[in-house]
């Protein structure tokens, strides 16, 4: 039963929604289903939040290595929750001045805005900026001319890296806009690095990307069908209790 009912619900919903894609009258049902999912996901956050608290409290009470981080997490969690729910420092909206909580929670100057601007914002930007460092160590380690394919990949990487900056113009900008002797239509300037980089993006990357996308689309269709038909039930857990 634990598996049969969810399977039945997903099969019925799935096939009905596939059908509605062709019936203009019911085409909105997909949006409604999405809204239902968002509602469920929002309620499920209580589960997640509860689990987060439980795990961190366990770490603190057992004084596990790194329990200090757990304490920081908990403090940050409660401060943010309080500041957001209580709308600390938020002015009432102009439309409803009599209600203290009617303002926007992210209003400039409010406590939540302050947390966002001076804690969340620099922390997020720092994490994203780490990519620049990791990409350099990955380039150092992984881009090696181990075989023909890897060598081609490497050369193309160099062309695109140079072509996407002023270095490309610097290095090849002097190539004249004159036809190459013995051939019509091709000029020396066609070998400008920015131009070559654009050709690589348009004529090689795009078709490759299209092929991968078609493969992925078929994979999505087949996986979805397996789920709807109940051929693959591993995500549903077991009928028995452990």
């Amino acid at each position: 039963m634990k598996r049969t009912i969810p399977l039945f619900i997903s099969a019925v919903t799935g096939f009905v929604l596939i059908g509605t894609a062709f019936i203009p009258q019911f085409v909105d049902w997909g949006n409604d289903a999405m809204a239902w999912f968002n509602l469920l996901a929002a309620f499920a956050f209580i589960l997640g939040g509860g689990n987060l608290l439980k795990m961190q409290l366990q770490k603190i009470s057992a004084q596990q290595p790194g329990w200090g981080y757990a304490a920081v997490t908990l403090i940050a969690f409660f401060i943010t929750l309080y500041v957001g729910l209580a709308k600390v420092g938020v002015n009432p909206s102009v439309k409803f001045p009599e209600f203290a909580w009617s303002g926007e929670f992210q209003e400039e100057g409010s406590a939540f805005w302050w947390l966002f601007e001076y804690i969340f914002y620099p922390l997020s930007a720092t994490m994203f900026a780490l990519l620049a460092f990791y990409i350099s160590s990955a380039a150092f380690r992984a881009f090696r001319a181990k075989n023909t394919e890897a060598t081609i990949l490497l050369l193309i990487a160099v062309i695109v890296l140079l072509g996407r900056t002023y270095a490309g113009v610097w290095l090849t900008g002097w190539l004249p806009n004159e036809p190459i002797i013995g051939s019509s239509g091709i000029t020396y300037s066609d070998f400008h690095l920015p131009h070559l980089s654009q050709i690589i993006m348009d004529d090689f990357t795009t078709p490759g990307m299209r092929a991968i996308t078609i493969g992925i689309a078929l994979g999505v269709a087949s996986t979805s069908l397996k789920v709807l038909l109940g051929v693959d039930r591993s995500y549903l857990g077991s009928d028995q209790e452990a």
Partner: peptide, 24 residues
């Protein structure tokens, strides 16, 4: 922001070249 991008890309090319020197 294109200035830092230029130098960073040149560094990346340098690192790739260095990586390959080590490999060979």
């Amino acid at each position: 922001r294109m200035g830092p991008q230029l130098v960073a890309h040149v560094l990346l090319i340098g690192l790739i070249a260095l990586g390959n020197v080590i490999y060979f």
